[in-house]
């Protein structure tokens, strides 16, 4: 083998015209591959996702994520293997951090394990590049294995695309390809998975893309307005104007109908664009916060963004901390061109 297929990354042999695995034309430039729309949510054509060209000017932007720092094993000091386990004592390395906070000019994020979960399977990544501010929040699906790795990998992959100038759909596809690689072939129906929520703020508008049930809100003087629709039966009903709470639906109604991972239903993320005319905060959060309906009481319009995300995280912990929490905020003021510090 000499090279990887630009479409599905399977190994190829010198002289091959087409990929043995996905049939892609190996002689064509990478841009030619496009996502094949699929009729049903059966098999995810993850291989068909474009792996975007490397960012043209990655050096101009910077980003931070909640990914755990590399280093020797906390228990025995040995190094970790590529599979995420210590080569000495076998201790599992979590992909994410128990608690992390980062801020860059005009964008902040916090994640916390909460009180009940064994590890933090939420992840965030924030980035700035020129006039662009970008945020990614991913929530690992706890019923799937290695979901912390899925969430962290997706967040990091996506922010690299967004900081490099790519759009949210490209970031989602790139994250999908990376997370699909985490799955073993034996685990085709039990693959690492996570939600995906990303926002790009530039040129006076906020674009939000999502798959799953992590949510984006616009907070201003009028309160919190949800910009996203959960990918679940309950979420769809609510969006259609039905009072889902009153229906007393089973827990199944909250089950995700879409997610990001090797076994995910095909398709691109939902997108919505907001052009605020008033100053406010774009908030991105996992359901570790929004599961507590009174979370909006913890919003205080006076504090700065860093203060806000910390207060919301503390609120979720105080309310029970049943799930991991990831909250990110981008303050926005249409009257000012530059990012709000």
């Amino acid at each position: 083998m000499t090279a990887a297929c630009p479409s599905c990354a399977a190994p190829t042999v010198d002289g091959d015209h087409y990929c043995e695995s996905c049939g892609a034309d190996l002689a064509a430039p990478a841009e030619q591959f496009t996502l094949q729309p699929s009729a049903g949510p059966l098999s995810p054509p993850v291989e068909a996702f474009v792996e975007p060209a490397p960012p043209p000017s990655a050096s101009t932007g910077e980003w931070r994520s909640s990914k755990a720092a590399a280093g020797p094993c906390a228990a025995c000091g040995a190094t970790a293997g590529a599979d995420g386990y210590c080569d000495g004592c076998g201790l599992r390395r979590d992909a994410g951090s128990e608690h992390a906070e980062h801020d860059l000019p005009g964008v902040v994020a916090v994640t916390d394990r909460g009180l009940r979960k064994r590890r933090n399977e939420d992840a965030y990544a924030i980035g700035v590049a020129g006039g662009r501010r970008a945020v990614v929040v991913c929530d690992g699906v706890s019923s799937a294995p290695d979901s912390d790795a899925a969430a962290t990998t997706a967040a990091v992959e996506a922010i690299e695309v967004l900081v490099g100038g790519g759009d949210i759909t490209g970031a989602y596809r790139s994250a999908s390809v990376a997370v699909a690689k985490l799955a073993g072939s034996a685990a085709a129906y039990d693959a690492p998975a996570c939600t995906f929520l990303a926002a790009v703020v530039e040129d006076g508008q906020c674009t939000v893309g999502w798959v799953g049930d992590s949510r984006a809100y616009w907070l201003d003087g009028d309160g919190a307005r949800c910009l996203t629709v959960d990918d679940s039966l309950a979420g769809q009903l609510t969006a259609a104007g039905v009072d889902a709470d009153a229906l007393r639906l089973s827990a199944q109604a909250a089950a995700l109908t879409r997610w990001l991972g090797a076994d995910a239903p095909a398709g691109d993320p939902h997108l919505t664009t907001l052009r605020p005319t008033t100053a406010g905060v774009l908030l991105l959060t996992s359901d570790g916060l929004t599961r507590y309906p009174t979370w909006t009481d913890a919003i205080d319009g006076d504090g700065d963004a860093a203060e806000l995300v910390r207060r919301l995280t503390n609120f979720a912990r105080a309310a029970g901390g049943a799930d991991n929490i990831a909250v990110a905020a981008v303050p926005f003021d249409p009257s000012r061109g530059a990012p709000q510090p």
Partner: peptide, 12 residues
């Protein structure tokens, strides 16, 4: 001597 605490995961 080094079996995991509750909640810990190791590779066997």
């Amino acid at each position: 001597d080094t079996v995991g605490a509750v909640g810990e995961e190791k590779l066997a």
